[in-house]
């Protein structure tokens, strides 16, 4: 699709230097205009409101244009605990976002389940969708979110255009496979065997 496939499929057609230049220009545009979709479910969602409010002002990093439609956003900010009940919805939202797209796991609950290690909470959203930046904190301070944004911008800087080509994207590890097969995923967690 779009600019990625144009360059990706015509290797050798464009001179390397031009390729490099276009790469840099596109990445520069992408990293400075991240449009977040706040998937705020819990306490971290309240703190994300602090991030966009006037005191901290995420506009300084070009990421103030909060979109509530996944099709208009390219940065999924998962702020809050994701339960097993919520997991299929998170997966669907992620699938609805268009490439290129990035994910920040905002807070320990999203990153690892946090201190909710129980029957209801997914132990890290990377069991459901791929994650670019893990942000610890319960909840993280707004400044910590800026740190995550800068880390993500650095990551985008080093990307190649065809990294976001759907076919060429590296496959996830088996335990984080997103091809939604619940039976297999259950085995990753503790099982019910031997207990009533």
């Amino acid at each position: 699709m779009g600019i990625e496939s144009f360059f990706a499929n015509k290797t050798g057609f464009v001179a390397t230097r031009l390729d490099h230049l276009v790469n840099n220009v596109v990445n520069w545009g992408r990293e400075n205009s991240l449009w977040p979709y706040p998937f705020g479910t819990a306490c971290c969602g309240i703190e994300f409101m602090g991030v966009v409010s006037n005191t901290h002002d995420v506009a300084r990093f070009g990421a103030e244009l909060v979109r509530f439609s996944p099709r208009q956003a390219d940065l999924l900010v998962v702020a809050g605990t994701i339960t097993y009940k919520m997991a299929p919805i998170l997966k669907r939202i992620y699938d609805q976002m268009l490439d290129p797209k990035w994910v920040i796991a905002f807070g320990v609950c999203a990153a690892s389940g946090g201190f909710y290690n129980n029957y209801s909470v997914v132990q890290g959203i990377d069991r459901v969708i791929p994650v670019d930046v893990y942000l610890p904190g319960c909840p993280p301070r707004p400044e910590a979110f800026f740190d995550a944004i800068i880390a993500l911008q650095k990551k985008i800087e080093s990307e190649k255009l065809d990294d976001h080509d759907r076919e060429r994207r590296p496959q996830l590890r088996p335990e984080t496979d997103t091809s939604w097969k619940p039976d297999r995923l259950i085995q990753a967690g503790p099982t019910n065997e031997g207990r009533d």
């Binding site: 997991a87 619940p182 099982t191 207990r195």
Partner: peptide
């Protein structure tokens, strides 16, 4: 058992 999570599809 507290850790018995159950996935939903």
């Amino acid at each position: 058992f507290i850790h018995d999570g159950q996935w939903l599809d």
